[in-house]
């Protein structure tokens, strides 16, 4: 019961904070859904990394009498070569979120000219902060998600690639062209 009340209080505080940094009356929940949906879609798009990775990884092997064996001297292409483009979704989401600040500005012209009120507030930056803080935070969140996703992919790359096929130098592991027979 106490936990439930605490959770309700936290939720109310979060809602108040979101409202504080949004144009008055704007339903920020819709933007939150967009962000959530965008992150899920970006993640799905990012999963194409694993398809690309396992395709390349399979090429390190050859079938000998029905058994898969590593090809001698085969080197895995660098991580970023394999991961090329898998973060596009996150980057696009970050760009959309940044553009959202423009839509938030236009909100002040919808149904009235509340821009007149916003522009004569004694707090000089109130208008811009309400337009830009949350979209900037969402864009940052999207980039952070991209970073975390990239680290997970890199961990998979490092652990699932046979040791013998990893390039020696770190630079080569990241950017090397590799050599597949």
């Amino acid at each position: 019961m106490k936990k439930e009340a605490q959770r309700g209080k936290t939720r109310a505080q979060a809602a108040a904070w979101m409202s504080r940094w949004s144009p008055p009356g704007l339903d920020w929940r819709i933007e939150l859904y967009w962000l959530g949906g965008g992150l899920v879609l970006s993640l799905f798009y990012g999963l194409t990394f694993f398809g690309a990775y396992f395709n390349v990884r399979n090429e390190l092997f050859q079938s000998v009498h029905g058994r898969m064996q590593l090809i001698g001297g085969a080197v895995m292409p660098g991580f970023f070569i394999v991961a090329d483009g898998c973060l596009r979704g996150f980057f696009a989401l970050a760009a959309v979120m940044a553009a959202l600040s423009g839509l938030r500005y236009l909100y002040y012209f919808q149904g009235s000219k509340s821009i007149y009120l916003m522009r004569r507030l004694p707090k000089r930056n109130e208008l811009w902060l309400r337009c830009a803080v949350l979209p900037a935070a969402a864009a940052l969140l999207s980039l952070c998600a991209a970073g975390i996703f990239l680290l997970v992919c890199f961990a998979v790359y490092m652990n699932a690639t046979p040791e013998a096929c990893l390039a020696g130098e770190l630079y080569e592991r990241l950017w090397g062209a590799g050599s597949l027979q």
Binding site: P23, P24, G25, L26, D27, Q110, G111, S112, K113, S114, I115, Y116, L117, R120, L121, P122
Partner: peptide, 15 residues
């Protein structure tokens, strides 16, 4: 803040 403005275009927040 020492000046206020009422306009027929309205400057309130409709929502």
């Amino acid at each position: 803040g020492r000046m206020s403005f009422a306009t027929c275009e309205h400057s309130f927040f409709p929502n």
